[in-house]
């Protein structure tokens, strides 16, 4: 065994890999199960972007909060939300994270600091300012992370929140997951200047761009930004350029993408492949170690799908609970 050249312990390296692999398998499996027609509604898959959620959230604990997006499964898993409960939620079952009342776009676990995936683009940004404000009042050193895509970056809520975070000096990190497409519309078409760092500068906060397909690049940059926010250094923006392996939602034929784009990205920009190669090359672990994790994750996802399918549906009486009904 040689010296560890990475800024993470071997244990953390393997934990990061397991998280990324869990996200990938979860999404790949949903892709298959959705096609069978067993999953109600629609799902937006995070496959390809695992290094962002994992690289950022390896720096967080339950005291830190995240506000996620419609493409939220990866953020949930990286924040420690139970995979069985998530799968059951996506199947609309009573054992789901939200007892079947939220679905894919509303998975939340406030006890883990996960403030919810969100069906409204850009809606998480104001919410995370509130979470950060709460941390600031309590003095608990908690940091808030809000994710949004290149599409939602054009929402007024995001821009207003950047200003609010800067004006109030809140411990917020704005993470842009720039996958180049707002649903089907390309970034170039939808913006005058497609730099999100420039927007941060306009509000007086620093912004950094990293390759979001490289776990180590995200991990190191996010680490510095989160430490700065935690220490009272104020908000910042992290722009991660990523590739979405699937469409906007399942069932999207993706005809707006270039021919071979997905294949190229899977072949050359897969964060799991590069992570595994680097750790193996450094002599810290072997393919067997990674294969073992892959196997365990595959079993976990198999089990999550099987138990979600077998789980009971919510009782009809659930329709009227968890809300004040005055009619």
């Amino acid at each position: 065994m040689s010296d560890n050249p990475f800024p993470l312990s071997l244990e953390d390296l393997m934990r990061a890999y397991r998280t990324m692999r869990t996200i990938r398998d979860f999404e790949e499996r949903l892709h298959i199960e959705f096609a069978k027609g067993d999953i109600p509604g629609f799902v937006h898959l995070y496959a390809g972007e695992e290094a962002v959620a994992t690289g950022v959230q390896m720096h967080l604990t339950d005291i830190d909060r995240i506000a996620s997006t419609h493409r939220g499964h990866g953020h949930c898993i990286a924040k420690g939300v139970d995979v069985h409960e998530m799968m059951a939620e996506i199947y609309g079952k009573a054992t789901g994270s939200c007892r079947g009342k939220g679905g894919s776009m509303h998975i939340a676990d406030l006890s883990k600091g996960m403030m919810g995936a969100n069906g409204i683009l850009g809606a998480g940004a104001p919410l995370i300012c509130g979470a950060a404000l709460a941390s600031k009042f309590r003095g608990d050193r908690g940091v808030g992370i809000t994710y949004f895509g290149d599409g939602a970056a054009n929402q007024g809520t995001v821009l207003e929140s950047m200003n609010l975070a800067a004006a109030w000096d809140l411990p917020v990190v704005f993470v842009v997951e720039n996958n180049g497409y707002a649903e089907s519309t390309s970034v170039e078409f939808a913006t005058g200047v497609d730099s999100y760092v420039d927007r941060a500068s306009g509000f007086g906060m620093p912004g950094v761009t990293v390759d979001g397909m490289d776990f180590f690049a995200v991990y190191e940059a996010a680490g510095e930004i989160i430490r700065r926010a935690r220490d009272g250094g104020g908000p910042a923006l992290l722009e991660c350029s990523v590739a979405r392996f699937y469409g906007h939602f399942e069932g999207d034929a993706q005809t707006y993408k270039a021919k071979g784009e997905n294949e190229y990205n899977r072949e050359n920009r897969d964060c799991l492949k590069s992570f595994r190669k680097r750790v193996c090359d450094a002599g810290l672990a072997t393919d067997r170690d990674f294969d073992q994790i892959d196997l365990e994750v595959a079993r976990l996802i198999d089990d999550a799908v099987a138990s979600a399918k077998a789980a009971p549906l919510p009782k009809p009486s659930e329709l009227l609970t968890d809300v004040y009904v005055s009619y």
């Binding site: 200047v193 497609d194 730099s195 760092v197 420039d198 941060a200 500068s201 620093p206 912004g207 950094v208 761009t209 990293v210 190191e220 940059a221 510095e224 930004i225 700065r228 910042a236 722009e239």
Partner: peptide
Amino acid sequence: ISGRDIRRIVAKANSLQIA
């Protein structure tokens, strides 16, 4: 993306706007 790296955080590097 030149001039966009972590030195905006760990140092005081500028961030020249696209425009």
